[in-house]
Amino acid sequence: MKPADVFIAVLVAVIWGLAFVASRIALDELSPELMTALRFSIAAIPCLFVRRPDVSWPLLIAISLSLFLGQFLAQAFAIAHGVPVGLSSVIVQSQALFTIAFAALVFRELPTRTQTAGVAIATIGLLMIAGTVGYDFSVAAFAVLMISPVSFAVGNLALRRAQGARMFDLFAWLCLAAAVPLFTLALVSNGPQPTWHALTHISLTGLACLLFLGGVSTSIAYWLWGRLLRDYPAAQVVPFALLVPFVGSAASSIVFGETFGRLRLAGMLTVIGGIAVMLLAKRPQALPKTA
């Protein structure tokens, strides 16, 4: 990779790691539904200037509900209900585990031995983390957070069906498809008056966090990531995502004073290690078709 593109890959990982901290700050003023709706509304602004990509509405909605709505709404709910930011950033990256598992089931992509070992290592790490649940946040919050990597994985596979679409245009319209139901959910769950009050009384700090989440972390970062995946093999680009949980955990410890017990820290490092094994493994081979 060119030095400039390496810098971009690292920059995207840093942006995504800091986005967990921005989400935590914004959630002090907004409900998870409203915060997520505003995030995608800001990211959907380019829809005013770009045409809808040549992707059917059912596929567009399916990708949006999994890759964006399901993933980020689950994150927001979990963080709002006490799951530490650094831990959240690690759990979300376990999507690699679920992506490989779902690809084997749906596309019959047989994982390599190295990938299987990575899945096993990451699973052990998740079990170690699960052993710390119930002390500083609830089992229910952890269960909600686990929806995020599962939705992420489903969205990854659904995104394959949109090959050939312009990345920037596609992600803008995916954000729009997520923002509409999220606003509806916010109005139903919070009520029109509380929703309006939250919108009109948001602080400058909360607004800055939303602009970062929507304009930078979602719109710009996803576009840059898509360009890298277009120009280089995935094996060269995807490992940079391993920086995200490190950035998220470090930023959370600095901003919120987040600390990790020995078992949780060991579990987090084990998950990251398993993900590294999965990402650095050779590409899985498709199972032969039977007559």
Rank of each mutant, 00 (worst) to 15 (best):
K2T: 14
P3G: 11
V12S: 02
A13N: 06
W16H: 12
W16Y: 09
W16P: 06
V21W: 09
L27V: 10
P32R: 02
P32V: 04
M35I: 01
A37L: 10
F40D: 00
A43E: 05
A43Q: 05
A43G: 09
I45H: 06
C47L: 08
V50Y: 12
V50W: 09
V50E: 04
D54Q: 15
L60D: 03
A62G: 15
S66T: 15
L69I: 00
L73V: 05
A78Q: 03
A78F: 03
A78R: 01
V83Y: 01
L87V: 13
S89P: 06
A96E: 04
F98Q: 07
F98D: 04
I100Y: 02
L110E: 09
T112Q: 08
T112L: 09
R113A: 14
T114L: 14
T114Y: 11
T116L: 15
A120D: 09
A122C: 11
L126T: 03
L126D: 03
G131Y: 13
G134T: 11
G134K: 12
V139S: 12
I147W: 06
S151V: 00
L159K: 05
L159C: 01
R160P: 05
R160D: 09
A162H: 08
A162V: 11
Q163L: 07
L170C: 00
L170P: 00
L174I: 15
L176D: 01
L187F: 12
V188T: 11
S189E: 14
N190A: 14
N190I: 09
Q193H: 12
L199I: 13
I202P: 05
S203F: 10
G206M: 03
A208K: 06
C209V: 05
F212Y: 15
G214M: 11
G215N: 10
V216K: 01
V216W: 00
T218H: 06
S219M: 13
A221Y: 00
W223L: 05
W223M: 11
W223H: 12
W225S: 06
W225I: 07
D231L: 14
A235M: 07
A235T: 13
V237Y: 02
P239A: 11
P239C: 11
L243K: 10
P245D: 03
G248T: 01
G248N: 04
S249M: 15
S252C: 08
F256Y: 12
F256G: 08
R262F: 13
G267K: 07
G267F: 11
P284F: 11
A286I: 09
